[in-house]
Design a protein around this nucleic acid. Structure first.
Lengths: 351, 351
DNA sequence: TCATTCCGCTAATTCGTATTAGCTGTTAGT
DNA sequence: ACTAACAGCTAATACGAATTAGCGGAATGA
């Protein structure tokens, strides 16, 4: 059973008393249908294969065929960091599910991606990218030059998340943050809010920029943006003080963790959410919600699993027809939550 | 930049006015140090490489070298199922971390693993296993025959989790459930418990069997096993009734989810945990605990990340020296929790 | 009887890289 | 002056499977 040397078609051929070519023909039957192998010979070969447990070397195979049913998954950040397990995991779950049903394995490119200087790069010197038939790209910290290289080149890829043009249209499956943000702003307006605050960075990543732009556009002419705080990992105490000073009746957060910290602090300070102050979160991890780790914020759910699934499917489609550059935006479901209420009219009690 | 055909060493050779062999020698310099290439020629070749952006095809490379710095990860169950995300994810986090620092990519074998009948198999007909240099195996539902095949064969593997011999010693990194279980039983004995109940299956998987055997051994001659319920996904109502009838003062669970259901039901029935009845959980997911999704059970923490890390490291070591068959058992940290207390002496109040 | 067709198989080539053996021309050694 | 050594390269081959061209023999047709 355990030969010291790997079993090859030549070994099978010898056992069956035929040539290596015949073994290959038997294995890939029905292809070139003309020169059929008679059942007798065929059976001899198959018996030898069965007896030895031979399987074709996928590397040699892909060397000749140029494809090996593997999808690469390139991530700019580690795919399973403890701190943000909830960020990548849903994507990967969707990707794995789709890959499995499409008959593809998954190659996580973790190591091959670093260049000499330790930076993550798609086109590393290892060229390991080529091990996979195509590649899915995750991560908010995209390198524009590399993206442009992808667009210009002929390597099949799909970005998970919307991407601006990079010397050409980028093939992606994203989520429609702009539409969802617009809806939430609309809801706040309907409830009577006019003074808005925004806490969260405004770019440059598309996912962040979309929230910001969607927010601004939806507000235009209908509400007033009285406060913006673009500092990452801000101090809740300062944030609360500034929001109060601004007179805003509702705060929009681009990042759920910021909202959690803010919410906790505000409540500790005796600020009633949402009767004194409304909170809206633009997006959020799905899992943190289902697990009820914090209060149910008014927000929208990013369909990460579905994005992963569709991105994988799109990649496989691209392998078949590389000429298309589809761009898909999935709808984010609005989560009503419990942190958006009409503004408190007797606002003086707050100050 | 984007050539229609893939760039090869022959192209580079032509550009630099040398032979393909020379290009290869330049690329793998310092190896066969004797026949050195003069800086002048070397530079010409490197320039051509720089100009064209050539990278060696990793498939052809591994065809010749027989290794490609990829670790396979074979899972019997899907690696990212939503329901048990907390089970595999920690392993994968550890594996990825180690793989990255060791310079290996990760190949998740999701699709290649199914045979005609749809069963997950390590030695599938695809032989895709060979794409990776070696393989880590996860999953509690091990197939004994396949395991024996691994042991007998010369394919480098490491099992995550202890495994019984399968026609030979199995290479693994596991957790010492027996020791941890013994400790917990000891703590219960110290607190005065004498009547024990056990709820959870007793095999055949090693991880489960270890808990059961450890439990029995630790109890031997020191306490009485008054009730065993080996039914999976049991009904908490029936479980509670039977435990009460048995007169047990402490219940050991092999599965945290069972314990949660039991705990919830018992509390709803007015049974005080742990003053009326103690609960001990043998093992548990780490994340569900840190996230505080339920009360803090007295249990032990399975070092899943560390198991993943060490398994990956062991696999790489095996690639270098396949003759060793190391078996590592990591210690589980005991979590004091709040569900183990001295038994209630006026037990009649319970019945 | 000779040409044609078809069957059953194989030799040879290909994929892209690594590696070894060895060729050619120069220089050093005696 | 004739060998020896050596530098600087290249030809050739291997890796394992897929594929194409084609060979030898039997069967069929005219």
């Amino acid at each position: 059973m355990s030969a010291s040397r790997r079993l090859t078609q030549r070994d099978i051929a010898q056992l069956a008393g035929v040539s290596q070519a015949t073994v290959s023909l038997v294995l890939n039957e029905a292809k070139s249908a003309q020169g059929r192998i008679p059942p007798e010979t065929r059976e001899r070969v198959l018996k030898a294969i069965r007896d030895t447990g031979y399987v074709a070397d996928p590397i040699a195979r892909s060397m000749v065929k140029g494809a090996n049913r593997i999808l690469g998954v390139f991530t700019y950040e580690p795919a399973f960091p403890i701190a943000q397990a909830d960020f990548y995991t849903p994507f990967l779950m969707g990707i794995e599910e789709a890959a499995e049903s499409l008959g593809y394995d998954l190659l996580l490119m973790t190591a091959s991606a670093r260049d000499n200087s330790g930076r993550k790069r798609i086109f590393g010197e290892s060229g390991r990218l080529r091990l996979a038939d195509g590649c899915l790209i995750l991560g908010s910290q995209f390198d524009r030059d590399e993206l442009a290289q992808l667009v210009a080149g002929d390597y099949p890829y799909v970005a998970v998340g919307r991407r601006d043009d990079a010397g050409g249209a980028v093939r992606y499956v994203g989520a429609d943050y702009i539409a969802a943000t617009t809806t939430l702003v609309g809801q706040a307006l309907e409830k009577g809010h006019r003074q808005f605050a925004f806490i969260g960075t405004t770019g440059p990543a598309e996912s962040i920029a979309d929230r910001w732009r969607g927010f601004q556009n939806a507000l235009k002419g209908k509400g007033e943006l009285v406060h913006v705080d673009a500092i990452e990992n801000g101090d809740p105490a300062r944030q609360l003080a500034e929001v109060r000073a601004s007179g805003a009746s509702v705060v929009f957060f681009a990042e759920v963790l910021e909202a959690v910290a803010f919410d906790n602090y505000a409540q500790a300070q005796g600020v009633k959410i949402p009767s004194d102050l409304s909170i809206v979160v633009l997006g959020s991890g799905t899992r943190t919600h289902t697990l009820r780790l914090h209060r149910a914020f008014t927000c929208y759910a990013i369909p990460r699993e579905e994005m992963g699934r569709q991105a994988a499917a799109m990649l496989v489609q691209t392998l078949l027809d590389p000429s298309q550059v589809p761009q898909v935006l999935l709808t984010c479901e609005i989560v009503a939550g419990e942190t958006l209420a009409p503004p408190n009219t007797k606002k003086d009690s707050l100050k």
